[in-house]
């Protein structure tokens, strides 16, 4: 016998289900008057520093149908590459940018459109710089454990080419699934849950 480590096990995940809006975006879901506004609906304000960008996203299932009941959360650095978090020890992030957003799919089209700022670069643990990216977390009916992925930017070719996460992917032909394409004033990013175009998801 040896000493016990006495570790606990992480609580098991369960799907967010079809009524996730009640809990996480009640105003969007038609429950008004309980909270003044839905958390994460407006990540930028007029004082936030950095380049304003618009992101247009869809979550697409294995049959090619956009999910109309999904919810996406985003987490990103500010324009200088600093996170607004106590675990950020390199400096103080822009106080006018929380860095986190929460977006339900439109119930009739499945579209998700939001405004944020282009994040700065953040180092990998070995000191190499990662390309600008937004971390995404996706939940929905039929998804048992929230899916983690990242969105990179098509107009950051040099940074993307040296990004430590993108370059370590064994199947380099899948890198494109992580890159939002610039289309006029917006970045367009489709997340494919399965099939030939399946997005790279992370076990992190």
């Amino acid at each position: 016998m040896v000493q016990e480590l006495r570790r606990l096990k992480e609580s098991a995940s369960q799907t967010a289900g079809p009524y996730v809006h009640i809990g996480l975006t009640p105003n969007f879901g038609g429950i008004e008057g309980v909270y003044p506004h839905d958390l994460g609906a407006q990540p930028v304000n007029e004082k936030t520093k950095g380049e304003r960008i618009t992101v247009k996203m869809r979550i697409v299932d294995g049959a090619g149908t956009p999910l109309k009941d999904a919810l996406v959360e985003s987490w990103q650095a500010d324009a200088e590459g600093l996170y607004n978090s106590p675990s950020e020890t390199r400096g103080t992030a822009d106080p006018n940018f929380q860095g986190w957003g929460r977006y339900p799919s439109e119930m009739d089209t499945g579209e998700i459109v939001f405004e944020t700022i282009k994040p700065g670069r953040v180092p990998f643990p070995d000191g190499r710089m990662m390309a600008p990216h937004i971390s995404l977390w996706i939940v929905a009916r039929g998804i048992n454990l929230g899916l983690a992925t990242r969105m990179y930017f098509s107009d950051e070719e040099t940074a993307n080419a040296e990004d430590p996460v993108l370059t370590r992917l064994e199947h380099q032909n899948r890198v494109s699934t992580l890159i939002a394409r610039r289309d006029g004033g917006a970045y367009v990013f489709d997340i494919h849950l399965q099939g030939d175009k399946e997005t790279v998801f992370f076990d992190i």
Binding site: N84, S87, Q98, P123, M130, F202, I204
Partner: peptide, 14 residues
């Protein structure tokens, strides 16, 4: 799913 060592993007949070 693909794994990589945690960076500040993973160890920080709102």
């Amino acid at each position: 799913p693909v794994s990589f060592p945690h960076t500040l993007s993973e160890t920080t949070g709102p």
